[in-house]
Amino acid sequence: MYEASDLRKGLKIEIDGEPYIVTNFEFCKPGKGQALYRCKLKHMLNGSTLDRTFRSADKIDKPNLETREAFYSHSEGDVHIFMDGETYEQYAIPDEILGTGSRFLKPDIECEILFYKERPVEVTLPFFIEARIIETEPGARGDTATNVTKTAKLDNGHEVQVPLFINEGDLVKVDTRTGGYSERVSKA
């Protein structure tokens, strides 16, 4: 069980046997009274939302979540196929569960898939992936005092903002949590 004071954005909880994730969280404690934890919750399977206020003495169920390691294999339309690293079982994960993460999928990267009652609810990619720059303006150009980044296209087709010293052909690290450039791995 969780205590109300464990509540925070991103916590996964269970209400009436259904799995929810806290998407917004507000702490308040009016009038020298008890603490209130006002949460917006999103159903982890069907995406429906719910407002719920918890009080300091409330206990909250933990959902029974299971993590499995799996390697990304390929995509079939809007469904991404992963293979369990231990059992070689294949999992078909709909695109909406990956959200923006799907753009960083590369064959054989190892991901963590979270299951709730045998249904996949979340895929966590490695925090950093490497990608090659296939298109960007050369070197530092223009007003360097205010323009400290430029747009670059990655080999997976997506665009990121990179520092001016990055060139085409460079290998860079991208943070999959923010979608932003992290550092250069090697020069072209």
Partner: peptide, 10 residues
């Protein structure tokens, strides 16, 4: 009913 704070806030 232990609802004072919630009613006040909401």
């Amino acid at each position: 009913q232990n609802l004072f704070e919630q009613v006040l806030v909401e």
